[in-house]
Design a protein around this nucleic acid. Structure first.
Lengths: 229, 229
DNA sequence: AACTGTGAAGTTTTTCACAGCC
DNA sequence: GGCTGTGAAAAACTTCACAGTT
């Protein structure tokens, strides 16, 4: 897709392209920005105004070099000899992550997980507003949790379309997740956070992240009782 | 620590060591085994008995080479020309991950997240038995959720010690998490799954994993509205 | 003196590609 | 022909180390 001709790349082409389009920052780096952001916000709450890559790294348990390299993908935010103005860096990170706006989110599934999500204040605090909750179960439809009414799954697609919602969290049983993901995408959802323990099959332009506590427990059981390091 | 002398490594030493102790499989590989296990179990449920690294990779959205390389750290489980006997591979993965036993787990925090955990059947299905729930709130102590009574946080350490529990899930507010982690470690907990959005400071021999939906949403908002690929 | 931003070096992880076996 | 297991190659990621700035 990047090629203009049918021939393979040559150095001149690569150079030409590299002038036109900067390489994208690695996804793994983007995945660390939220943790930087949160640690910096915690520092502000502790009345710290300035920090260094060393201090931040210590707090997060990672190297200062990694923090500097990560940030360097997006700009020059620090001052030599001084460090980073936290307020400014927070602002910049919020721009990079597009958090300088409120994002509307819908929750699919009104079971215990869905309920835990709508009651968790962290989403609102971080700029994610849960605006709807959907379930198939007629018993649950009409219930209200933390002020959010459970609506019928049948109404999901038109409501998401009408309100232009882009983010959804799936908390349904695994066997319903794939079909629901397809409806969501059809409705215009682009980012899905799935609590269902199975890989969703989605087009390349849809982003999916998984929350999977069981896999994480199983990862840790590997190390239990193993004294061989 | 690996060195026997004060001098730096030399090739002979490295070779000597490599005979004595096989290199540990990378942690990133161990982290993928639970997902292989789950996909294989799903295949069994679909009455599939045999698979190949290609079929499994397709299902998981990863390359066949990665699956073969990952598994090769632990043994030779496949047959050339045929593939893998799923039942056998599942059994082997369960041995590797030490899932051929039931693990007792405690939940700290009896709020919405803690409740969602005790009501989620997936833990029991995967061999994790939630045996206790603890909270500071006197209003919550004594409540019962899915048959599990909320106990006083003060009783936590002795109970964990008495029962020899090794795994805990923290669902308390962030500001309590560090202190609780320290108590847990004191009580003998070795593996912690934390839902608190802050890095826990723990000794090297303690394993911690984090569940952090907000970071994952923030990771995805980076890509929203960006058509520059 | 303290700290950033960054090429270069080093390490880890993934992919390639193929000999060997069923 | 189909598939595994694996060295070798490639790519990705992290750390080093230092010039340059405050």
């Amino acid at each position: 897709m990047l090629q203009c001709t049918g021939r393979p790349f040559n150095l001149l082409q690569v150079h030409y392209i590299s002038i036109l389009m900067k390489p994208q920052p690695p996804d793994i780096v983007i995945g660390r920005l939220p943790m930087y952001l949160r640690a910096l916000e915690a520092m502000l709450a502790d009345d710290i105004d300035i920090t260094s890559s060393y201090a931040l790294g210590k707090r997060l348990g990672i190297s200062s070099a990694q923090i500097r390299k990560d940030l360097s993908h997006f700009g020059d935010f620090g001052k030599q000899g001084t460090g980073y103005d936290i307020r400014y860096l927070v602002e910049q990170l919020r721009i990079i992550l597009q958090l300088n706006q409120e994002w509307e989110v819908v929750v699919i599934g009104a079971g215990h997980v869905g309920q835990a999500l709508v009651y968790y204040p962290g989403f609102a605090d971080s700029g994610f507003k849960i605006v709807g909750m959907f379930d198939v179960d007629p018993e649950k439809i009409g219930e209200e949790h933390n002020g959010i009414k459970v609506q019928a799954l049948n109404d999901m697609v038109p409501i998401i379309k009408r309100d232009g919602i882009r983010i959804a969290m799936i908390t349904t049983p695994a066997d319903a997740a794939q079909e629901i993901a397809e409806s969501l995408i059809d409705a215009g959802i682009i980012s899905i956070l799935s609590y269902a323990p199975l890989p969703l099959n989605v087009p390349d332009d849809i982003h999916v992240q998984y929350v999977d506590p069981i896999s994480k427990l199983q990862h840790m059981t590997y190390y239990l009782n193993r004294e061989d390091d």
